[in-house]
Design a protein around this nucleic acid. Structure first.
Length: 566
RNA sequence: CGGGACGUGGCGCAGUUUGGCUAGCGCACCAGUAUGGGGUACUGGGGGCCGGAGGUUCAAAUCCUCUCGUCCCGACCA
C-alpha cells in the first residue's frame, strides 16, 4: 500500500511545469501560501538530494551540525540585522515577551557558536554545515517550492585564520558544488556575483538553467565569461555613426507622449535614437540623473555602485521642482542634478530627449554640445548585440534558477560578535569566514523544471524516488500478481528501490500515473509474461522499450546498477 | 505595500451581469456488472449551509459593507 495521490488536472494555481508537476505527481501539497507538506514521494526525492549534498560536503571536509530554527533576537541585534531584515523575517515572542525569529539564515548563530567554542588557530580551518529548514516571509511566494516561505537549505560556514585558508576552503566548496550539480545531472552555469559595495569579496552563484527561472544571466560562448545580469560587465554594441554631422537642436511638440515606446513611434525613429533619462535618489534624497540609450534599461545596482551609494528610483514628482515626468532630458535640467551617462550614449548623435517641458521633446540633441556629462559609466543591463568584456564575442543570455551561492564573508560577522581566536603569534584575531548555501527544496523544483515532458516528470536516476516501477496489467490474474511479487522481492534483494503498483485499476491508469511520477525504469508484467516469461522494460527518460526475459533480470539490474553507481 | 483577479463537494469549473423552484457539470470517491497493454463502458450511490461576518430584501451563491484567504502583475513611466 502506497500513498501517492496524483492529480489528473493541473491545479489552477500552478504557473510553471515544476509547480504543476510536483503537485500532480503527489510530491507536495500546499498548506498555506509558500508553505508545503512533503508527501512520501517528495520526501524520498528530498532525501536523495540531501544525501548527495551531504556526501559531497563531507568529502570536502564539512562537518554536520544542526542549529536551532528559533533564534533569539539578541544575536540579530548584535549583527544589526534585526532591523535590516525587516518584514522578511518571521518574528515571534515567548511567554516572557522575549523576541525571537524563525531563522531566515544562520550566520549570527554560527558565529556565536564559533565564539563559544573555537579558541585557537590549531582548531582551524573548520567548516560546519547543516541541512535545515529556514523561514523567510517573502513578499510574493511563487512557483511552489521555487520561492517558498518555509524551505530547506544546506548552509555551510567556514572559519579560517587567514584569507589564504579561506581561499582554499572556498575552492573546495566550489568544486563540491560542481560535483553535486554533476551527480544530480543538472545543466547549470556558475556566475560571478561579486558584490562591489562590500569590496574585494568574492561570490559565485550556481544557476540551474530554466526558461521559467527568475534569475537572468549573461555568458560568453567563446571564452566562458558569465555573470548575473546585475553584475555583468560588457562592451556596448556600437551604433556606428562616427561621421554623422551634428544637426541643429529643435523643440517638437509631443502631446501626451510620455514613454520611449510611443515616442519612437510618434517621431518614427528607432528606440536607440531616443535618450532615456531616469532620476534616482540616494538616502539623503539627493537626486541624480542617469541617461542611456532608449532601448536600454537602467541597472540601478551598478549605478549605485559607481556612486558608492544606495540608490532608489525617484518615483514621485518632487514638490517644488521642475521635473516633468515623461518629458525629462539632460538639456536644461535643473542645475543641481548631476548627469551620469551610460556608455550606450557615447556614440549617439542627433538624438531625441525630453525637453523638461510638458508635452515637448527635443530632437537633434548632442552630448557635449548641448549638455555636460558628469561621469561616464556602465549603468545599463547588457542587451542583445553587446559584446564580451573579455574577448569581444557576442554575449548570450539565459534564464535560470539560483540553486547555490557561495561567498567569502571575511570578518564582517566575526568582528561584530567578537568571535576571535588566538593565532600562532599569540594575538587575538577575528575568524575569516565564508558561507555556502544550497536551496535543497528549490533544487527539487529545479530538477523537475529540467526533467519533464508533457506526460510528467522524468527523474534522473540519481534523485529518483524509486529506480524501478513494477506494473501488472491486471490485478485480477493471480499468476501475474505472484510473478510480480517474486520479481519485486528479487529486485529488493539486489539492492534497487522498487515501487510495485498493485492497484486494481486498468493498465492505462497505471501507465499514466507512472509517466507522471517519472520513475526511470518500468517493468510491465502482463500477457507476454504468461505467454513466454518475458516482461517489457521501458525507460522514462528516452521512452525506449525493450523485452526482457525473466531469466535476464539479474544481468539487467547489475548493468543498471553499475551504470548508475548504485 | 500598490494595482488586478479569484474564492461554489477532494480537484477543475459553470451559475453571479438581470436576486426567485430541491445549486449544476466533468474528474475523483463508494457499490455493482462487463472490461483489463495507455486515464474503458454502463447502472446505482455518498458528499457542498456557495471562504467568513454583518446588512438590504418577502426572497441572496447572486446586491452592499467589512473581513480572511489565494493567485497574477508591479522602474523602463522618471
Amino acid at each position: 500500500m502506497m500513498f501517492i495521490p496524483t492529480l489528473k488536472e493541473d491545479p489552477g494555481e500552478a504557473e510553471i511545469p515544476s509547480h504543476a508537476l510536483t503537485l500532480r505527481a503527489g510530491l507536495i501539497r500546499k498548506i498555506a501560501s509558500g508553505i508545503y507538506s512533503f508527501l512520501p514521494l517528495g520526501l524520498r526525492v528530498l532525501k536523495k538530494i540531501e544525501r548527495i549534498i551531504r556526501e559531497e560536503m563531507n568529502n570536502a571536509g564539512g562537518i554536520e551540525v544542526i542549529l536551532p530554527v528559533i533564534q533569539p533576537s539578541e544575536l540579530w541585534k548584535k549583527s544589526g540585522r534585526w532591523d535590516e531584515y525587516g518584514p522578511d523575517m518571521f518574528r515571534l515572542r515567548d511567554r516572557n515577551d522575549r523576541d525571537f525569529c524563525l531563522g531566515p539564515t544562520h550566520e549570527e548563530l554560527i558565529t556565536y557558536m564559533a565564539h563559544l567554542d573555537i579558541k585557537s588557530y590549531k582548531e582551524l580551518p573548520l567548516n560546519l554545515y547543516q541541512i535545515q529548514v529556514k523561514f523567510r516571509d517573502e513578499i510574493r511566494p511563487r512557483y511552489g517550492l521555487l520561492r517558498a516561505r518555509e524551505f530547506i537549505m544546506k548552509d555551510a560556514y567556514s572559519f579560517c585564520s587567514n584569507v589564504q585558508d579561506l581561499d582554499l576552503v572556498y575552492n573546495k566548496m566550489y568544486s563540491a558544488y560542481i560535483k553535486i550539480m554533476e551527480r544530480i545531472g543538472l545543466s547549470y552555469k556558475v556566475v560571478n556575483a561579486e558584490t562591489g559595495l562590500i569590496g574585494g569579496n568574492v561570490s559565485h552563484e550556481f544557476i540551474v538553467l530554466a526558461g521559467d527561472g527568475e534569475e537572468r544571466l549573461v555568458y560568453c560562448p567563446e571564452c566562458g565569461y558569465s555573470a548575473n545580469m546585475e553584475m555583468a560587465d560588457f562592451a556596448c554594441a556600437k551604433k556606428n555613426k562616427e561621421n554623422t554631422e551634428l544637426k541643429e537642436i529643435k523643440e517638437v511638440s509631443t502631446p501626451g507622449i510620455r514613454d520611449i515606446d510611443s515616442l519612437s513611434k510618434f517621431l518614427n525613429t528607432g528606440k536607440g535614437q531616443t535618450l532615456k533619462t531616469i532620476l534616482v535618489m540616494d538616502n539623503r534624497k539627493k537626486i541624480y540623473a542617469f541617461i542611456m540609450s532608449g532601448d536600454r534599461e537602467l541597472n540601478i545596482t551598478k549605478a549605485g555602485k559607481s556612486l558608492g551609494k544606495n540608490l532608489e528610483l525617484s518615483r514621485d514628482e518632487e514638490p517644488g521642482r521642475n521635473l516633468k515626468a515623461g518629458f525629462l532630458g539632460p538639456v536644461g535640467l535643473e542645475k543641481d542634478i548631476e548627469i551620469y551617462a551610460d556608455h550606450s550614449v557615447s556614440d549617439m548623435k542627433n538624438f531625441v530627449t525630453g525637453a523638461n517641458r510638458e508635452d515637448m521633446h527635443l530632437i537633434n540633441v548632442n552630448t557635449g554640445r548641448d549638455f555636460k556629462v558628469r561621469q561616464w559609466g556602465n549603468f545599463s543591463y547588457a542587451c542583445d548585440g553587446d559584446n564580451c568584456i573579455e574577448c569581444g564575442a557576442k554575449l548570450k543570455f539565459e534564464k535560470g534558477i539560483e540553486i547555490g551561492h557561495i561567498f567569502k564573508l571575511g570578518t564582517k560577522y566575526s568582528e561584530k560578535f567578537g568571535a576571535r581566536f588566538l593565532d600562532k603569534d599569540g594575538k587575538l584575531r577575528p575568524f575569516v569566514m565564508g558561507c555556502y548555501g544550497i536551496g535543497v527544496t528549490r533544487m527539487l523544483s529545479a530538477i523537475v523544471e529540467q526533467n519533464h515532458d508533457d506526460k510528467g516528470i522524468a527523474w534522473p536516476v540519481s534523485v529518483a524516488p524509486y529506480h524501478i516501477n513494477i506494473i501488472t496489467t491486471t490485478a485480477k490474474d493471480p499468476n501475474l500478481s505472484e510473478a510480480a511479487e517474486d520479481i519485486y522481492s528479487k529486485l529488493l534483494k539486489m539492492g534497487v528501490e522498487v515501487l510495485y503498483d498493485d492497484r486494481d485499476l486498468s493498465a492505462g491508469i497505471k501507465f499514466k500515473d507512472s509517466d507522471l511520477i517519472g520513475i526511470p525504469v518500468r517493468f510491465i508484467i502482463g500477457k507476454k509474461y504468461i505467454d513466454k516469461k518475458v516482461i517489457d522494460v521501458e525507460t522514462r527518460m528516452d521512452r525506449a522499450k525493450t523485452e526482457l526475459p525473466v531469466d535476464s533480470i539479474n544481468g539487467f539490474i547489475k548493468e543498471f546498477k553499475s551504470r548508475n553507481n548504485i
